[in-house]
Protein backbone atom coordinates (compact mmCIF):
# COMPACT_ATOMS: atom_id res chain seq x y z
CA UNK A 1 0.00 0.00 0.00
CA UNK A 2 1.67 3.16 -1.19
CA UNK A 3 -0.91 5.78 -0.26
CA UNK A 4 -1.38 7.08 3.26
CA UNK A 5 -4.40 5.42 4.76
CA UNK A 6 -6.79 8.07 6.05
CA UNK A 7 -9.69 5.74 6.70
CA UNK A 8 -8.46 4.16 9.89
CA UNK A 9 -7.00 5.28 13.19
CA UNK A 10 -3.57 6.93 13.06
CA UNK A 11 -0.67 4.77 14.23
CA UNK A 12 0.76 7.64 16.25
CA UNK A 13 -0.85 10.75 17.67
CA UNK A 14 0.88 13.66 19.40
CA UNK A 15 -1.35 16.01 21.39
CA UNK A 16 -0.01 19.35 22.61
CA UNK A 17 3.39 17.92 23.40
CA UNK A 18 5.84 20.17 25.25
CA UNK A 19 9.44 19.44 26.13
CA UNK A 20 11.39 21.68 28.48
CA UNK A 21 15.03 20.95 29.26
CA UNK A 22 16.74 21.75 32.55
CA UNK A 23 17.30 25.48 32.87
CA UNK A 24 13.86 26.24 31.42
CA UNK A 25 14.92 25.83 27.82
CA UNK A 26 11.75 25.20 25.87
CA UNK A 27 12.75 22.81 23.09
CA UNK A 28 9.25 22.06 21.88
CA UNK A 29 5.89 23.66 22.54
CA UNK A 30 2.39 22.50 21.72
CA UNK A 31 3.27 20.01 19.03
CA UNK A 32 0.37 18.01 17.66
CA UNK A 33 0.35 15.64 14.76
CA UNK A 34 -1.14 12.42 13.49
CA UNK A 35 0.82 9.80 11.64
CA UNK A 36 -1.15 7.36 9.52
CA UNK A 37 -0.09 4.11 7.95
CA UNK A 38 1.83 4.97 4.77
CA UNK A 39 2.55 8.59 5.68
CA UNK A 40 5.89 10.17 4.83
CA UNK A 41 6.07 13.21 7.06
CA UNK A 42 8.92 15.70 6.97
CA UNK A 43 9.82 17.87 9.91
CA UNK A 44 11.46 20.87 8.26
CA UNK A 45 13.10 23.76 10.02
CA UNK A 46 16.26 25.54 11.06
CA UNK A 47 18.53 24.36 13.90
CA UNK A 48 16.94 24.61 17.32
CA UNK A 49 13.35 24.31 16.08
CA UNK A 50 12.83 21.11 18.08
CA UNK A 51 12.60 18.69 15.17
CA UNK A 52 15.22 16.35 16.57
CA UNK A 53 13.64 16.68 20.01
CA UNK A 54 10.31 15.60 18.51
CA UNK A 55 12.02 12.59 16.95
CA UNK A 56 13.69 11.62 20.23
CA UNK A 57 10.33 11.85 22.01
CA UNK A 58 8.73 9.58 19.46
CA UNK A 59 11.68 7.19 19.67
CA UNK A 60 11.12 6.94 23.41
CA UNK A 61 14.58 8.29 24.19
CA UNK A 62 13.02 11.02 26.36
CA UNK A 63 9.64 11.80 27.82
CA UNK A 64 7.36 14.75 27.13
CA UNK A 65 7.06 17.41 29.82
CA UNK A 66 3.36 17.89 29.00
CA UNK A 67 0.98 16.47 26.46
CA UNK A 68 0.46 12.96 25.20
CA UNK A 69 1.94 10.55 22.74
CA UNK A 70 -0.49 7.80 21.82
CA UNK A 71 -0.02 4.71 19.72
CA UNK A 72 -3.69 3.92 19.04
CA UNK A 73 -3.02 0.54 17.42
CA UNK A 74 -0.38 -0.45 19.94
CA UNK A 75 3.05 -1.25 18.63
CA UNK A 76 4.82 1.43 20.61
CA UNK A 77 8.54 1.10 20.07
CA UNK A 78 8.16 -0.95 16.88
CA UNK A 79 10.62 1.38 15.18
CA UNK A 80 13.44 1.60 12.72
CA UNK A 81 15.86 4.49 13.04
CA UNK A 82 18.33 6.12 10.69
CA UNK A 83 20.65 8.72 12.17
CA UNK A 84 22.63 11.48 10.51
CA UNK A 85 25.71 9.26 10.63
CA UNK A 86 25.48 5.69 9.34
CA UNK A 87 25.98 4.48 12.94
CA UNK A 88 27.21 1.02 12.01
CA UNK A 89 29.23 -1.25 14.23
CA UNK A 90 32.70 -1.11 12.63
CA UNK A 91 33.64 -4.53 13.98
CA UNK A 92 30.74 -6.28 12.26
CA UNK A 93 30.12 -7.10 8.61
CA UNK A 94 27.26 -5.51 6.68
CA UNK A 95 25.15 -8.62 7.18
CA UNK A 96 25.73 -8.70 10.93
CA UNK A 97 25.02 -5.00 11.23
CA UNK A 98 21.64 -5.49 9.60
CA UNK A 99 21.10 -8.52 11.82
CA UNK A 100 21.31 -6.38 14.98
CA UNK A 101 17.58 -5.77 15.57
CA UNK A 102 16.87 -9.48 15.12
CA UNK A 103 19.85 -10.43 17.23
CA UNK A 104 18.54 -8.34 20.10
CA UNK A 105 15.28 -10.29 19.77
CA UNK A 106 17.38 -13.47 20.04
CA UNK A 107 16.73 -14.55 16.47
CA UNK A 108 19.66 -16.41 14.97
CA UNK A 109 21.57 -15.20 11.94
CA UNK A 110 20.57 -18.29 9.99
CA UNK A 111 16.89 -17.64 10.66
CA UNK A 112 17.25 -13.96 9.76
CA UNK A 113 19.44 -14.33 6.70
CA UNK A 114 16.69 -14.43 4.11
CA UNK A 115 15.09 -11.24 5.46
CA UNK A 116 18.47 -9.53 5.74
CA UNK A 117 19.27 -10.28 2.12
CA UNK A 118 15.90 -8.96 1.00
CA UNK A 119 16.49 -5.72 2.90
CA UNK A 120 19.98 -5.37 1.43
CA UNK A 121 18.58 -6.02 -2.05
CA UNK A 122 16.00 -3.27 -1.48
CA UNK A 123 18.76 -0.73 -0.87
CA UNK A 124 20.86 -2.05 -3.75
CA UNK A 125 23.57 -3.77 -1.75
CA UNK A 126 23.37 -7.40 -2.87
CA UNK A 127 26.73 -9.07 -2.62
CA UNK A 128 28.04 -6.75 0.08
CA UNK A 129 27.01 -9.00 2.98
CA UNK A 130 30.53 -9.89 4.04
CA UNK A 131 32.07 -6.43 3.66
CA UNK A 132 33.08 -4.34 6.63
CA UNK A 133 31.72 -0.79 6.94
CA UNK A 134 35.17 0.71 6.34
CA UNK A 135 35.21 -0.88 2.90
CA UNK A 136 32.10 1.06 1.86
CA UNK A 137 31.59 4.64 0.69
CA UNK A 138 29.56 7.10 2.77
CA UNK A 139 26.47 6.59 0.64
CA UNK A 140 26.72 2.80 0.85
CA UNK A 141 27.09 2.93 4.62
CA UNK A 142 23.92 4.99 4.74
CA UNK A 143 22.18 2.32 2.64
CA UNK A 144 23.22 -0.32 5.17
CA UNK A 145 21.78 1.88 7.90
CA UNK A 146 18.51 2.15 5.98
CA UNK A 147 18.45 -1.62 5.44
CA UNK A 148 18.84 -2.12 9.19
CA UNK A 149 15.92 0.22 9.83
CA UNK A 150 13.74 -1.61 7.28
CA UNK A 151 14.67 -5.16 8.05
CA UNK A 152 12.16 -5.75 10.84
CA UNK A 153 9.39 -4.16 8.77
CA UNK A 154 8.60 -1.74 11.63
CA UNK A 155 5.38 0.24 11.94
CA UNK A 156 7.31 3.50 11.82
CA UNK A 157 10.75 4.53 10.57
CA UNK A 158 12.42 7.61 12.01
CA UNK A 159 15.07 9.39 9.98
CA UNK A 160 17.11 12.20 11.50
CA UNK A 161 18.71 14.19 8.66
CA UNK A 162 20.08 10.97 7.20
CA UNK A 163 21.66 12.48 4.09
CA UNK A 164 22.88 15.79 5.51
CA UNK A 165 26.52 14.71 5.62
CA UNK A 166 26.60 13.34 2.07
CA UNK A 167 27.62 15.08 -1.14
CA UNK A 168 24.89 16.47 -3.38
CA UNK A 169 25.04 13.75 -6.02
CA UNK A 170 24.94 10.86 -3.55
CA UNK A 171 22.19 12.63 -1.71
CA UNK A 172 20.01 12.95 -4.79
CA UNK A 173 20.51 9.34 -5.68
CA UNK A 174 19.60 8.24 -2.17
CA UNK A 175 16.50 10.44 -2.26
CA UNK A 176 15.45 8.77 -5.52
CA UNK A 177 16.03 5.36 -4.01
CA UNK A 178 14.24 6.23 -0.80
CA UNK A 179 11.21 7.31 -2.81
CA UNK A 180 11.07 4.05 -4.76
CA UNK A 181 11.67 2.16 -1.53
CA UNK A 182 8.72 3.97 -0.03
CA UNK A 183 6.57 3.01 -3.01
CA UNK A 184 7.67 -0.63 -2.80
CA UNK A 185 7.32 -1.19 0.92
CA UNK A 186 4.62 1.31 1.85
CA UNK A 187 6.75 2.20 4.87
CA UNK A 188 5.61 4.93 7.24
CA UNK A 189 8.35 7.49 7.78
CA UNK A 190 9.02 10.59 9.84
CA UNK A 191 11.89 12.42 8.24
CA UNK A 192 13.81 15.30 9.81
CA UNK A 193 15.52 17.61 7.35
CA UNK A 194 16.96 21.06 6.68
CA UNK A 195 16.21 20.86 3.01
CA UNK A 196 13.08 22.25 1.38
CA UNK A 197 13.67 20.23 -1.78
CA UNK A 198 14.19 16.98 0.04
CA UNK A 199 11.02 17.44 2.06
CA UNK A 200 8.86 18.26 -0.96
CA UNK A 201 10.41 15.53 -3.05
CA UNK A 202 9.84 12.79 -0.50
CA UNK A 203 6.90 13.56 1.73
CA UNK A 204 3.15 13.78 1.55
CA UNK A 205 3.05 16.15 4.50
CA UNK A 206 5.55 18.75 5.71
CA UNK A 207 5.52 20.25 9.17
CA UNK A 208 7.45 23.52 9.01
CA UNK A 209 8.95 24.31 12.39
CA UNK A 210 10.37 27.47 13.95
CA UNK A 211 12.79 27.95 16.83
CA UNK A 212 12.59 29.75 20.20
CA UNK A 213 10.46 28.03 21.26
CA UNK A 214 10.47 25.03 18.93
CA UNK A 215 7.03 24.68 17.40
CA UNK A 216 5.13 23.81 14.23
CA UNK A 217 4.15 26.97 12.35
CA UNK A 218 2.70 25.48 9.22
CA UNK A 219 1.48 22.20 7.84
CA UNK A 220 1.79 21.70 4.11
CA UNK A 221 0.24 18.79 2.23
CA UNK A 222 1.98 17.56 -0.89
CA UNK A 223 -0.88 16.01 -2.87
CA UNK A 224 1.28 14.16 -5.42
CA UNK A 225 0.43 10.46 -4.97
CA UNK A 226 2.96 7.63 -4.56
CA UNK A 227 4.60 6.13 -6.49
CA UNK A 228 6.03 9.39 -7.78
CA UNK A 229 7.44 8.98 -11.26
CA UNK A 230 10.76 10.08 -12.68
CA UNK A 231 9.26 13.37 -13.84
CA UNK A 232 8.35 14.47 -10.31
CA UNK A 233 11.56 16.36 -9.62
CA UNK A 234 11.12 18.51 -12.73
CA UNK A 235 7.35 18.87 -12.63
CA UNK A 236 5.53 22.14 -12.27
CA UNK A 237 3.73 20.91 -9.15
CA UNK A 238 7.06 20.10 -7.50
CA UNK A 239 8.50 23.56 -8.20
CA UNK A 240 5.34 25.19 -6.91
CA UNK A 241 5.33 23.15 -3.71
CA UNK A 242 9.00 23.92 -3.20
CA UNK A 243 8.36 27.65 -3.53
CA UNK A 244 5.49 27.48 -1.08
CA UNK A 245 7.48 25.46 1.42
CA UNK A 246 10.43 27.77 1.02
CA UNK A 247 8.23 30.75 1.89
CA UNK A 248 6.99 28.98 4.99
CA UNK A 249 10.57 28.27 6.00
CA UNK A 250 11.40 31.96 5.51
CA UNK A 251 8.68 32.80 8.01
CA UNK A 252 10.22 30.32 10.42
CA UNK A 253 13.59 32.03 10.06
CA UNK A 254 12.38 35.66 10.16
CA UNK A 255 9.13 35.88 12.07
CA UNK A 256 9.53 39.66 12.63
CA UNK A 257 9.44 40.46 8.90
CA UNK A 258 6.01 38.86 8.69
CA UNK A 259 4.77 40.69 11.74
CA UNK A 260 3.78 37.44 13.48
Amino acid sequence: MAQPDTSTEPILRLRQVDKTFAGNIVALRGMSMEVRQGDFISLLGPSGCGKSTALRLIAGLMRATHGRLDWPGGGEGDLGVVFQEPTLMPWATVERNVWLPFRLRRQSLAASRQTIHEALALVGLEGFEKKYPRELSGGMKMRVSIARALVTNPRLILMDEPFAALDEITRQRLNDDLLSLKAKTGATVIFVTHSVFESVFLSNRILVMAPRPGRVIEEIDVPEPYPRGDGWRNSHAYVEMAARTSNALQRALHPESEGV
Binding site: L61, F83, T87, M89
Partner: peptide, 12 residues
Amino acid sequence: DHNLRDLMTIYR
Protein backbone atom coordinates in the same frame (compact mmCIF):
# COMPACT_ATOMS: atom_id res chain seq x y z
CA ASP B 1 29.13 5.54 19.83
CA HIS B 2 26.26 7.52 21.36
CA ASN B 3 23.94 6.89 18.42
CA LEU B 4 24.54 3.16 18.72
CA ARG B 5 23.72 3.47 22.42
CA ASP B 6 20.45 5.20 21.48
CA LEU B 7 19.78 2.45 18.97
CA MET B 8 20.23 -0.15 21.72
CA THR B 9 17.70 1.75 23.83
CA ILE B 10 15.23 1.97 20.95
CA TYR B 11 15.57 -1.76 20.29
CA ARG B 12 15.13 -2.36 24.03
